[in-house]
Simulated assay, not measured.
Amino acid sequence: MKYLVALAFLAILASLGSALFFMLRDGRNGQPKTSRMARALGFRVGFSILIFLCILLAWKLGYIHPTGINAGQ
């Protein structure tokens, strides 16, 4: 599970990097830069949701446990 979370986090960083690259390019090759940048940012949102769901699933299955102060104290 932690490998999947790490892979999703790397995918988030790669998607942000590609969005930055497409933002800085000047729309050559006939395709507007905004559509490619928006697609890369959309993938980032999808990967963020995936990492949240993986953490939630790991908590529900008992792989990870919350720490901190109990609510009753």
Rank of each mutant, 00 (worst) to 15 (best):
R25P: 00
F47K: 11
G27K: 04
W59C: 03
L24D: 07
Q73G: 06
G46Q: 14
A19R: 07
K60Y: 06
I51Q: 10
G30E: 06
A19E: 08
A38Y: 02
I64F: 07
L16K: 03
A8H: 10
G62E: 04
L61A: 13
Y63Q: 03
T34P: 00
V5T: 01
F22N: 09
L61N: 12
M37I: 00
G30I: 09
L56F: 09
L41T: 04
F9R: 08
I64E: 15
Q31T: 15
I12K: 11
L61T: 13
G42L: 14
K60P: 14
I69P: 04
R39D: 15
A8C: 08
L61Q: 11
A6M: 07
M23W: 06
I55W: 01
N29P: 08
A40V: 01
C54L: 15
A71V: 06
A19L: 11
L7I: 05
G30N: 09
R28M: 12
P32G: 12
S48C: 09
P66F: 08
L56Y: 05
R28S: 15
Q73H: 13
W59G: 10
A38C: 00
Q73E: 13
G68F: 00
A6G: 07
N70V: 08
G62A: 04
I64V: 14
Q73I: 11
A8F: 07
K33T: 06
L13I: 05
N70P: 14
R39P: 04
G68Y: 08
M23K: 13
I12N: 08
T67V: 03
F21V: 13
L4P: 01
I69G: 00
A71H: 15
W59Y: 09
N70Y: 03
L50D: 14
M23A: 13
L7Q: 02
S48E: 06
G62T: 11
F22R: 03
F47T: 13
D26W: 05
L61I: 07
S18Q: 07
L4H: 02
L4Q: 11
F9V: 13
F52Q: 02
F22C: 11
A71Y: 12
R25W: 11
R36S: 00
A6S: 07
N29T: 13
S18E: 13
